[in-house]
Design a protein around this nucleic acid. Structure first.
Lengths: 313, 313
DNA sequence: TAAAGTAATTGCCAAAGTCAATTATTTGAT
DNA sequence: ATCAAATAATTGACTTTGGCAATTACTTTA
């Protein structure tokens, strides 16, 4: 083997990426067929899309964003302007450039294109089961996260009450994650299913609550506040999806439980966790929880150190 | 379980897929720039690729595989033939078509294109660490697996034991489906979480078992066989994803449980269900189950008619 | 055996896109 | 402050790409 300046990339990986490129070239071709009977070309549609979704664009920005030849773009813009779909306003900071904006008419004519594309994708997706769709979307996000710049990082999340199906999903994800990361077996999944079951069974809406964190329309975290006694609440089932970590979601969930427990006049909040869960522990510490007890135990196929933490309210 | 033509697709998923399409449109544009200083167009390169990697291609096969207009393809092929890169030989089974094949010269001239593309992708990949590359390749494979070789509704499925995460997923999906179709609320989700929890807690591998049906790498159904007494087994948690129905998966799952219960020397198999679940009932009837008892009950926010069925083994 | 369908080709044409040159401005180096 | 170099946008002159319909030569089907 001759020296290579670059790290050797496995040829199987190269082949896989190239196969994907060929595959997706066709896929995109198929999906952009919807444009054929519209009055816009693919490039025009891409231009309109950018204009509809970003403000303050200039021709050169657009050319760079879409990687279109500036000359060709200029002509396209002229055509759209002539059709009354877009206006250009001389920038006041730079006399050479104009700021582009869709007119009301531009938005109007573009709207059916958008809904048509939505419908087409919806039709495509409806061929699959929900879990397949989720796998697909997650995989696409991964591809984008790796290859592209992460503009996604700042995406917002929201907390809400769990809806039917969410509880099962939380069990599903926690079981999978703790299995992958710490080797916990199915008995752990049984344990959390039992916790969830008990939560629903004995649910006291006045003093108990659950939250899920949602981002991009998907559940990415959860937390439960359950009654241990009249004066003590228990924090349970905290988790945050790996792909959503670092956004402060875990901290926010814990804060929410503390706020809730205070409001419901609990005097203490306790929780049980295991020492391997570093990032969770850091959140608990930061929130003021104190470690009160540790015990070794062999559970779920692993040697673990259980910990009880408590917070006086 | 009622048949549904088309499930509602969450708009967040649609948006994610469309964002990916826009993203990858640019990506492909960037990756095919390598062709610019070659003497081949993108389409020619795609044609050559197919010819280099598959034997016995004809023009019409090629047109279909690459989704190229037959007329345009014809011209491209002529051009390549004129350059001495490819030969056409009249098919002996069909005088209308010709079998296409690259000449030695064709392979020679195509080779640098291939290695160029490899190098380009390799350069792209070398920007990442191995774990990122693995994630990328895996995600691409997933996209392809989901979107790709679908077509046939009769895609194969397989039965296997549940893996960590599968139990929660089953709870998740059943809760969601029965909520959407029959309005069952979260208490139903609690119930099945309890069943799953009990299954794990008291699991007797000699006399109990669970199966999940997998298709395209996703769980699309489940069934459980649990011990009710030494002589009686209970069939529980049967479900099949709406879009995986009609493939005989439900029937197969029930058969599997019956076979298992017989093999384990149970004398009877019982199950509890509700009268609204038509397609499930049909499966039970076909398998020989007999309705032994019905009772009205108000549960999970709905008025329901519970049914006990039994099968002598 | 006629009608319908399929494989491949061709002419015609419009759309899509490239390239280089040009003008008007702004930026940066001295 | 000034002038060369860079940037934004446009235009003219092209080529390439690719869609569509008609046509020919076969095969399949009713």
């Amino acid at each position: 083997m001759i020296e290579q300046e670059q790290e050797d990339v496995a040829s199987a990986q190269i082949a896989a990426v190239r196969a994907f490129n060929r595959f997706y070239t066709r896929q995109i071709g198929a999906l952009s067929e919807g444009l054929l009977d519209s009055t816009f070309s693919l490039t025009e549609a891409r231009i309109l899309y950018e204009l509809a979704h970003r403000d303050g664009l200039t021709a050169s920005l657009l050319a760079r964003a879409l990687e279109i030849d500036a000359g060709y773009l200029s002509r396209c813009l002229r055509k759209l302007e002539d059709r009354g779909l877009l206006v250009r306003q001389k920038s006041d900071t730079d006399q050479r450039q104009s700021v582009l904006a869709l007119t009301g008419r531009g938005r109007e004519e573009f709207a059916p294109l958008e809904s048509g594309a939505d419908a087409e994708v919806s039709k495509l997706l409806s061929r699959f089961v929900e879990s397949e769709r989720r796998r697909l979307v997650e995989a696409m996000r991964t591809v984008r996260a790796v290859l592209g710049p992460d503009e996604d990082a700042a995406a917002p999340y929201l907390l809400r009450a769990p809806e039917p199906g969410d509880l099962g999903f939380i069990i599903h994800r926690q079981a999978r994650l703790y299995h992958d990361d710490y080797g916990l077996d199915q008995r752990f999944e049984g344990l959390i299913a039992g916790i969830v079951s008990a939560f629903v069974d004995t649910f006291d809406p006045a003093r108990e609550r659950a939250w899920v964190a949602e981002r991009h329309g998907a559940v990415v975290g959860s937390i439960f506040c359950m009654k241990a006694s009249d004066t003590t609440a228990r924090l349970r089932l905290l988790y945050v999806e790996p792909s959503a970590r670092g956004l402060g979601i875990g901290r926010r969930l814990v804060e929410e439980v503390i706020r809730f427990a205070r409001a419901k006049n609990y005097q203490a909040l306790t929780l049980w966790t295991n020492d391997v869960l570093d990032s969770a522990r850091r959140i608990y510490e930061a929130a003021g929880f104190v470690l009160v007890e540790e015990e070794n135990h062999h559970s779920f196929g692993q040697d673990l150190v259980g910990q009880n933490w408590t917070l006086a309210l």
